[in-house]
Each structure stands twice: as C-alpha cells, then as structure tokens.
C-alpha cells in the first residue's frame, strides 16, 4: 500500500462533507487526488471501510456512502427534487448539458431573456423575487459550485465548467424507472 496519509486525509475531508472527487477537476491537487484514488482504489477503500464509510466509484467520480444515515427516504427524495429542478433548468439551457461542458453565466442569462420556458424555470428556482436575472443565474451556478458539481474557470468573465460529479445526478436519473402507462 503506497498511498500516503496526507492523501487519505484530504480525500476524507472532501468526501465526508458529501462532496465528490471529479476526474476533470480544475485544481491540479484535486486532480492528483482523483488519480491516486483511481489507481489505488482498494487501498483507499480499505482505509475508510472500518470507519463505516464506503468509497464508491461512479462514472469519472468518487464519493462516500454510509449505512444508517439519519435521513429518511422522504427527506432524500425532497432533496433530490431540488436537483431535478436544476437538472431540468440546465438541460433546457443546453440539451446534453453535462460533464465537461463549458459555459458563461451571461450566455444562460441571454437565453433566459429570449426563452420563456427557461425564464419561468429560473423564476421558480429563485426565492428572492427582487434580484436581477443575472444575479439569479449567478446564485444558482454558485450554489452548484459550492455543492461541487461545477467549478469556475474564468473568474473575470464568469466562465464555468461542469465537473464529472454532475454524472452522479444523471446516474440517479437513470436509476429511476418511469411507469410506462400512458395517460
């Protein structure tokens, strides 16, 4: 086992907060962590397992799962609702929106100004009615960044990139089967 404990600690700090390790992370040190976990997966896994944390692998991302969390199924579904809204918003902005996509906040703003559907979704996502469209979009993207699904590449021009962790949200969507009855 040749992983050093700075790495195990850093990976733990990140993943224990419910965040993800993305293959296309911008910061080089996070990238390095991803590569290490990728290469020495079993070693990392065995460090965390005795603590009750299961290291899970997704499509270009890693995360923790844990039995006996305090969340009920309802609470988890509620939380996921919010993400359906966000997935839908970004998918409406750009079908196929996902890992690796780059965008500028102003492009989303512009599209909101011309497409009513997109704008409607934005209004419903934002609780504060008085902020401008640009502020609403920025706040939304910032929230996604804080949750670890996006990162800022170009601070000045508000250019962002979608991280691999976004696949997690899509993977859950994939798991959900819709009843095929047509009404």
């Amino acid at each position: 086992m040749n992983i050093d404990h700075t790495s195990t600690r850093r990976v733990f700090e990140l993943l224990s907060r419910g965040q993800f390790l993305s293959a296309n992370a911008i910061k080089p040190d996070i990238r390095k962590l991803y590569d290490q976990v990728d290469e020495y997966f079993t070693a990392f896994e065995s460090v965390y397992a005795p603590l009750g944390f299961h290291l899970k692998k997704g499509n270009n991302y890693y995360y923790f799962s844990r039995e006996g969390g305090r969340q009920t199924i309802e609470e988890k579904i509620e939380r996921f609702y919010r993400y359906i809204d966000r997935l839908s918003f970004f998918a409406t902005f750009a079908p196929g929106f996902g890992e690796g996509m780059r965008f500028y906040v102003k492009d989303i703003v512009h599209k909101c100004n011309v497409e009513t559907d997109l704008n409607d979704q934005l209004q419903r996502l934002s609780s504060d009615k008085s902020t401008s469209t640009h502020d609403k979009v920025r706040d939304l993207v910032e929230e996604m960044r804080r949750q670890g699904f996006m990162d800022c590449e170009d601070d000045e021009n508000e250019g962002f990139i979608v991280l691999s962790s976004y696949n997690y949200l899509k993977d859950i969507v994939d798991l959900i089967d819709i009843d095929p009855t047509n009404e």
Partner: peptide, 18 residues
C-alpha cells in the same frame, strides 16, 4: 409513477445526508 422510493431506499451517498 416511478420507483423513486425504492431507489432512495438503497441510495446512501453522503451527499444526501445533511
């Protein structure tokens, strides 16, 4: 209309643990 409850019964990612 979906099996979302079943999915989240098994989904234990820390992400959903607040």
């Amino acid at each position: 209309r979906t099996n979302v409850e079943e999915v989240f019964a098994h989904e234990n990612a820390l992400f959903f643990d607040t």
